[in-house]
Write a protein that binds this DNA or RNA. Structure first.
Lengths: 358, 358
DNA sequence: GTTAGCACTTTAGGAAAGAGAGTGCTAACA
DNA sequence: TGTTAGCACTCTCTTTCCTAAAGTGCTAAC
């Protein structure tokens, strides 16, 4: 898959052809390429070359006398070529930068704003999926009594507060809650949420004994943890700008647009689509590569944002295969880099203005 | 606007005509009405009557030899007529009922699920706007110290917990927080959030003196309250099923669909559209009545859900003017009634499973 | 290896024609 | 006076046909 069979001239012609098609959405023709003086060759020679590229699977004709459009293989060649050569919309990206610099914002809010801005800059629907809470380290656990047999469980993590309500059999006093929180903190601090859940399942009896007089609370905590995990899983996907798809000529037919718009409404499906454990920071999945009938004419650009090497959010941009790869690549690269800056973590950890998960 | 100029026969014909049009989406013709034996009159007589109804502004012809379609006035007549005669999709509504009976759900979650189910039952996009937090009564205020100069402010209300972070200059100990919470509770309990904010603005100095050694906290609370109000205003709109619009023949053209889908993505605009202080529980705004160019071919059905006479949420259903008014009316009435049941308030107040606002 | 020239193919768009649907009007009828 | 049959008229929708335009592939010459 290294395009090694392509002569330099073919590579250049193919690159120009795909670039043209992305810009104009009208099939590539030998005549047009000569007219735009993208080559010194004659249209006849170009025809030969285009024909050869078609034989090799990089282009295809819609009908005999029409021009050619890129195949997935053609787009793939193009994407691999521009990879390190992305174009950035500086004005738009500066707007995003100001969001990152605004220290008063919390992480989940930041993610939302990023999705909005990216969608604005790229003019494509943008999806953001927050990483699960499983890998978050527990810093402390607090229990706050509320009225009528309820209490609030707060779990502090390096990335903000998690909260969920406990359902008690009887009301409890303030001091017991404080004490129970301390005991739970001692037991579970430094573990991740995931490890805590594991521990609870595998060492249930053991822990109950250890917790002594606060074992009663433990059952409620257990109950609440299930709710917590569910709650944060559901709220972890955010999408913006779905209707921007309709600006593209490939979705002028409602039937074609409907399927993808429906997909964009289904958070669960979106999550599956965006989440993956690729090591690449930025990756493009083009058409058939997505292995989803509905998306056979789409490309999804994904960026995996990491803080301290840990995946904290994935950003996806969905559009027609004929999307502006260079611009999108630039925008995603910018985001990934912003997350990689060491001081963002500082901001996130010692955030002056409440870094909360909700 | 009382349709008093209509003979009984005209009323019946008009009703049938609109009903037909809603069902079939094809213009009303004298021939079709006779064929469906909706009348014992001849097609010629029907033609006279339809012509008269057109002169009176209830119907209009798209072109000379086509059939007629209802005008806004025609739909308005129809809606007024079916008002107390709505049809319910029992199967679908029973699904919603089970959500109401599920006592473990909190109010904002309930609202979301209701929007989803209504959208499913009616097959139209559905919008839910939660009432503001201004009118919520304060039951108690708690302050919880967090790490590194932060604290969490919790305000208990009859409809769940509000929370926001306080930014402190220096860290504080647990006991001071508990005490500060008590003092704030004594001062502000029984007021509404709105009143609390008013008080803070108008009696700033007075309160600071009163709060004595906890006056320091007060400044932070003030700061946090602004954030709180903003936060809950932004999260108060929820919409579901936007792409369901595309199922309707009137949106087979992307240009027509685009505007409304864009509108459905803009939470702020949706909020303005759905919120109003009408006394009617259920109301329909048809086409021009909405006074919005983009919505001139739409109808919005709104229901105002009240608990104890206070507006707690508005539900809006948006669709083409040719929407199934009887079915939608039935669904909305069902929802409003469920909210009106006295025991929902109980559920909401003494909810066993944490009735939280987030 | 490149290119000019030409025949061939296919689409897009418009004009023309005919069928079908529906109305309005007139005149007859109860 | 209200109702209805009948008919001419209008308008749309579909089909068919035609032409222009665009683009290719192939061949032969350079």
């Amino acid at each position: 898959m290294s395009d090694i069979d392509l002569s330099d001239r073919k590579k250049q012609i193919l690159y120009q052809a795909v670039e043209d098609y992305i810009e104009n959405a009208s099939p590539i023709t030998s005549g047009a390429m000569v007219q735009k003086s993208e080559t010194t060759l004659s249209s006849a020679t170009l025809r030969n070359e285009l024909n050869a590229l078609e034989q090799m699977g990089y282009l295809k004709q819609l009908h005999t006398s029409g021009g050619r459009v890129p195949t997935t293989k053609g787009y793939r060649f193009f994407v691999n070529t521009i990879k390190d050569n992305c174009r950035a919309d500086l004005d738009g990206l500066m707007k995003i930068k100001s969001v990152f610099e605004q220290r008063t914002i919390n992480l989940s809010e930041l993610i939302k704003v990023v999705a909005e801005k990216i969608s604005e800059v790229t003019d494509y629907p943008t999806i953001v999926s927050l990483g699960g809470i499983d890998k978050l380290e527990i810093l402390s656990i607090k229990i706050i009594p509320l009225m009528t047999n309820q209490a609030l469980m707060l779990i502090q993590t390096p990335r903000g507060l998690l909260n969920n309500t406990l359902e008690l059999e009887q009301s409890v006093d303030e001091q017991s809650c404080i004490d129970a929180g301390r005991v739970l903190t001692n037991k579970f601090a430094k573990m991740t949420i995931g490890e805590m859940v594991d521990n609870i399942v595998t060492k249930h009896q053991e822990i109950i004994q250890e917790l002594n007089e606060y074992a009663g609370f433990f059952e409620y905590v257990l109950q609440s943890l299930v709710g917590l995990t569910k709650k944060y899983a559901q709220n972890g996907v955010y999408s913006k700008g779905a209707t921007k798809l309709l600006k593209n000529p490939e979705y002028q037919n409602v039937e074609q647009a409907k399927e993808i718009l429906q997909l964009l409404e289904d958070k669960e499906e979106l999550k599956n689509l965006i989440d993956d454990d690729s090591d690449d920071e930025i990756e493009f999945s083009i058409g058939d590569e997505l292995c989803d009938e509905r998306l056979s004419d789409c490309t999804i650009a994904k960026a995996h944002c990491k803080i301290n090497g840990e995946n904290i959010a994935s950003v996806g941009i969905i559009g027609p295969k004929r999307m502006d790869y260079a611009k999108i690549s630039g925008a995603l690269k910018f985001i990934v880099d912003e997350f990689n800056k060491p001081d963002l973590l500082e901001t996130s950890k010692n955030n002056k203005k409440g870094d909360q998960y909700d």
